[in-house]
Write a protein that binds this DNA or RNA. Structure first.
Lengths: 244, 244
DNA sequence: GTCGAGAATTGACGAGTCGTCAAATATCGA
DNA sequence: TCGATATTTGACGACTCGTCAATTCTCGAC
């Protein structure tokens, strides 16, 4: 039965790929991009370097795989969050909460992703992996765009003439990206003692209030929503801090 | 007269440093971080590699110098913008405009800065240069915090209990950072045909409206403000696009 | 004009890493 | 047991970084 052998082979291959990924993730967190070393990885997993290159075409390709690994988990959390049954603004909030919980679960994901943002790095990964990477991002945007569309259809949100559907999303996305970058920089004295995570949430709400996305903060207890979403969808306490 | 010789020496040294920086910037834009090569720089400027290392202690140190180079120009533009004589919200807007014009003038600055954000890279630069880098960032935050303080003092802005002064700044900063990062990624189909720069400005205004920072968008022509600030302070057309 | 001490410049070199590939080894059905 | 096929190996070539002993240059003193 040839297929039994083939299936075992595949299983072993996947297990080894997992081993490489886990080892690389640990090393990357510890030593950074420049410290990550293919020879050391090979040594750590007790295979030769050639075998590592059977799985990943280059060091950068391996990093991209690390990224895709957590990004898949992130996309799944997005999907789950989007199915939350509430107002359109609560559903958008659910995505934000999904992301915040994701960050709590995978604190070093964005440090890895920021390596890939260097154009000279992304140029070195295989085409399939790059395509998959773009597909994941696109799927997330689809989920989000759908929520805005629903809000407009339901009359919760009225976008002024000339403002595209993606505008409020873009505001949240840019803030989330900026937040994760700033968090990974050297701490600024101006932010000492301030819960920047709570500030991020405050700013989300201020912006959506500015768009007039109903129900407004003044008419709804979003603190309670955050707790409800967190526990219902993810079974965890809210990551949003105290909203204002 | 020994000082004449010394002064000429210094001048020559500075000129060569300029030459190295300009060459490196061009190469970095063209070939990316991984493509940038100390031997090639030395060859291009027609000096030896050892001489390049007289100026910069490592490849990463050179990149940090590139960054500091434009960052100094940016800080100067911030300072100029902050002195604009208008409402507190216009003054904040002036900073945003300064930054947008800066991006227009130095389109590849953030690509360079993002290299430095990799922790394993910043670890390799000299202490003085790192300190200078942090000092520039801090100075910019000082300018901004001052504007928010003035707004609160003037009664233009009332921050709810528990919201720190830096909150609205953080929202703008995070969006600016996120925007520059997203812009340098592979283009998303959801944004095709949309002027993301105009969207960024829309979002700034929505958020500040959400904070109730007076005068609100509904009571003031910020389009006109943008044009006025751009021409008055920088003698250039507004980079904000059409605001909504 | 010449000299020589000290400053500036050079580029060969050691160390380290990436990615390859011919050779060695392991697997598995006949 | 055997041989064809799949898998693994690690020595190797190519490349880059950063160093430093050797070389060249500079400039004031005589």
């Amino acid at each position: 039965m040839a297929s039994a052998t083939a299936s075992r082979r595949l299983r072993e291959r996947l297990a080894r790929e997992r081993l490489i990924l886990d080892t690389a993730r640990r090393m990357l967190a510890e030593l950074g991009y420049l410290g990550l070393n293919m020879d050391r990885i090979a040594e750590a997993i007790e295979y030769s370097k050639g075998t590592v290159y059977q799985h990943f075409s280059s060091k950068e390709d391996l990093i991209a795989a690390l990224c895709a690994d957590t990004a898949a988990a992130r996309a799944e959390m997005f999907r789950k969050a989007a199915s939350y049954d509430g107002t359109t603004r609560e559903r958008l909030m659910a995505i934000g909460i999904a992301d915040a919980i994701f960050i709590r679960r995978h604190p070093d994901h964005f440090a890895v992703e920021s390596i890939l943002d260097l154009s000279s790095v992304i140029d070195k990964i295989t085409d399939e992996r790059r395509d998959r990477w773009v597909a994941i991002k696109t799927a997330k945007m689809d989920v989000l765009t759908r929520i805005v569309q629903d809000a407009v259809d339901a009359g919760d949100l009225v976008l002024p003439e000339g403002v595209p559907l993606c505008a409020p999303l873009y505001g949240m996305w840019a803030q989330a990206v900026g937040h994760s970058r700033i968090s990974s920089m050297a701490p600024m004295p101006h932010f000492a003692g301030v819960d920047m995570n709570a500030v991020l949430w405050t700013n989300y709400n201020r912006m959506l209030d500015g768009y007039g996305w109903k129900p407004l903060t003044s008419d709804w207890d979003y603190q309670a929503s955050a707790e409800r979403i967190s526990t219902t969808v993810f079974g965890e306490p809210s990551p949003a801090g105290s909203l204002t």
